[in-house]
Design a protein around this nucleic acid. Structure first.
Lengths: 258, 258
DNA sequence: CTTGTTTGGTTGTCTATACAACCTATCTGT
DNA sequence: ACAGATAGGTTGTATAGACAACCAAACAAG
């Protein structure tokens, strides 16, 4: 019944707790397998078992010959209470700002149409913004908006203002809910250029479907975060050997947003 | 660049291919670790590595002391061209039939409302059907239907007829598309009773969101299949060490259905 | 100062073995 | 015929070691 939890799982839990507490801050560098063997006084296979869970759940990135790096970092944010970027920055005494890299009206791919519950051929607004905290680039925001819902604010200044604040002022739209999914990725050329990080730097990719209250889907976005600056907190799941695919602590689920 | 593919991955691919070809038919029993060590002439750790991928992707269920069992079985079905139950049965020379276990109008949970893109408090039709091929129970179908769209056929005979056929006749509704996700589960009490399998027998759970052409979401369903009778074919993904979370070959994606 | 080599560190893969925990078939005693 | 013990099989966990492949810092040669 209440069987003992394996060593590797205990180690996984402790390492995850450390990650979430922000123990590994500078340079993201995580202890090597060799160091962890010494720390926990177990075999390397046991260490690798624990780290593999963290890797599969997106908390770590591993590079043969290079090392292990944490993807979740700083700017603490409880995923159950995620708030708008502007409010998040203010919370950390950072000045929020943005730069519009692209704003255009396009016919989206079939996949995007479907995700946003739109008929094929229906136009959307495609927006890419670079968001800063105290002039430091933090997030690349790649979004698609429902064209009809977005139209009232299309020509407004999207660098100085929160889109939802504009929308609320103009149309009385109220905040609804969103679905999100978090992944770890490596920086590509655009991220390298825009976020001022090295190529292949570990970053966080958060995909969201946002829906205002009592309305259809308004926005689908894929936002890339500098994981050395912004940290999302999560929870472990209880050890269960019957469960093959360990889900991300944050999977598609309903969250209240803005 | 073109690095050699590891042994464990080759073995994983071969075993997956065998699973999809239906090599393991009778009793679902998969070869033991010991047998596979002999067959492939590698260490048990290498075998375990390969099997863990299959386990994590839902193709296998493992039970300590008991063995390894395949979750994907027979009644071959290409996931890219999934068709209606009735047509699937006819394709295998089986007589389709159904039994309505429950049909009621309810206020769904917030989660179901959201999945179906409905306003909170909006009624849905909740339907549970047991579907048979040649009087053999094959599928437990637990569905929620958009009440307004379903209303024209609410009082019709849902045991003798395909819901979409009825809907098409009554309202000229045409087939649209669906999203689906496949998981492996163990039989609980209801599955034990309705599908006539032992408790904890491995079964397939398929969650679907179904949308007719040019309309809003019509149905969300969670169907449990006897995996010893119905097989869904899939594809492997190329070996990629950078990718921690190996996705199910079938993730949320767009498929044409009925 | 630049380039190539060497060294030492990293992770990934593979092998082998041992023991724990679980399960089932067979055997033995009543 | 039945219950308990035993034996043999299974998967899960842990250990130890070896080698491949990769990476970066240090060093040597030009």
């Amino acid at each position: 019944m209440d069987q003992p939890v394996p060593k590797y799982y205990r180690i996984y839990e402790e390492l995850l707790n450390d990650i979430q507490k922000g123990v590994y801050q500078n340079d993201n560098l995580f202890p090597s397998d060799t160091d962890l063997v010494k720390k926990f006084n177990v075999s390397r296979g046991t260490i690798r078992e624990a780290i593999k869970l963290l890797f599969q759940q997106g908390f770590l990135i591993r590079k043969q010959g290079k090392g292990t790096f944490v993807t979740y970092r700083k700017i603490e944010q409880d995923a159950e209470k995620l708030i708008g970027f502007t409010e998040l920055m203010k919370k950390h005494n950072l000045k929020p700002s943005a730069k519009v890299l692209k704003k255009e009206i396009v016919i989206p791919t079939a996949n995007i149409s479907h995700l946003m519950n739109l008929k094929t051929g229906k136009k959307v607004v495609r927006l890419i913004r670079l968001r800063y905290g105290d002039s430091q680039p933090l997030i690349v925001e790649r979004s698609f908006f429902n064209y009809e819902l977005f139209e009232p604010i299309f020509d407004m200044d999207l660098e100085k203002n929160s889109i939802f604040e504009l929308l609320h002022k103009k149309t009385k739209t109220e905040l609804g809910n969103a679905l999100q999914r978090i992944e770890a990725i490596s920086a590509g050329k655009e991220e390298h250029q825009w976020l001022e990080v090295d190529l292949r730097t570990p970053l966080l990719l958060i995909k969201r479907l946002i829906k205002p209250k009592d309305q259809q889907i308004f926005q689908y976005s894929e936002d890339v975060y500098r994981s050395d600056r912004i940290n999302f907190s999560t929870k472990t799941v209880p050890y269960n050997p019957d469960f093959g695919l360990n889900p991300l602590p944050l999977d598609l689920s309903e969250k209240d947003w803005f």
